[in-house]
Amino acid sequence: MNIERRQCLVAMGALAAMGVLGPARAAGEFKMGLLVAGSVAEEGWNRIAYEALKRVEKELGAKISYVELQQNPASFEKAFRDYASQGYQVILGHGFEFQDSAETVAEDYPDTVFLISSSNIHQGKVIGLNTDSSQPFYLMGAIAAKMGKSAGLIGGMEIPPIKEALEGFTNGAKDASPDFKISQVYLGNFSDATAAKEAAVNMIHSGADFIVPDADAAGLGAIQAVREAGPQISTFGIFSDQTEIAPKNILGTYIADYGQGIVRIVKGVQAGTVPTSNVDFGLKDADVMKFFYNDKAAKPVPDDVRKYVEEVKAKIIAGEIKTRYRK
């Protein structure tokens, strides 16, 4: 990562000298920019977008750039404009909070495609891309309810992608076993790994045999609590393969291969086809949303549960099970 940055820097130094900040020089070049609120260094949310961007670079030969903004809605519009004015054809704003500014900038740059993560917007070339995490979390909830008696969910902040995921887990568990107990904690941030760990310890003491964090880097604290608690407590890897962190406890991993989905869409844009609606990735997109088991776990998921999971998965894909927005 560091080496990449330096290489990039050498190139950029040269470009800066030539006036890279001016309008795009080579009209044929395909460029994609990424805006994240926070750091791509942290495990989880922003990293997914960064890895997607790298995939676009590798697979489509695009020139890429990203910017880590402070969590500050006021700075988003400028960053969009910076990229758009430099001739970037596709700009990904990674989070619903980028919606407003993308819409505004899109008025001035009608040819640029603005992709917004975790959003269901569709306004001209401003296109929301949602990874419906409630679906894989529904499967995890089903597994937990079939195998255990109580689960603790630890969310970072109360924002739609996390709320929906936790809702999906709850629905999946209650559908499988209505008496299954679920408790839930929001940390209020994505950085306090210490609090996440204590929240998990408390849930385990209160009888939870499943702990499921959805709190980016802070969630690592929860996984660590599970690991320390021993093999009878289980958890899942979320968004990236964390099996090595707790090989005995992680029963399965949900990976949103956002890169695959982004590559698919950007490839289309490159060829001249812009999506005509917002995009909702779900279990139906097997190349994007993956869930796999860890057979080396202390309590691997038994075959009958796997069979049940396959059944509900088929129903979710067929649209027969609603995993979120039940209220």
């Binding site: 950085s191 306090d192 609090a195 660590q224």
Partner: peptide, 16 residues
């Protein structure tokens, strides 16, 4: 203590 005796990772701004 936060990184060596409680959580086992460093997270930016983790002192909270």
């Amino acid at each position: 203590y936060l990184t060596l005796a409680h959580a086992n990772q460093f997270v930016e701004g983790m002192t909270s």
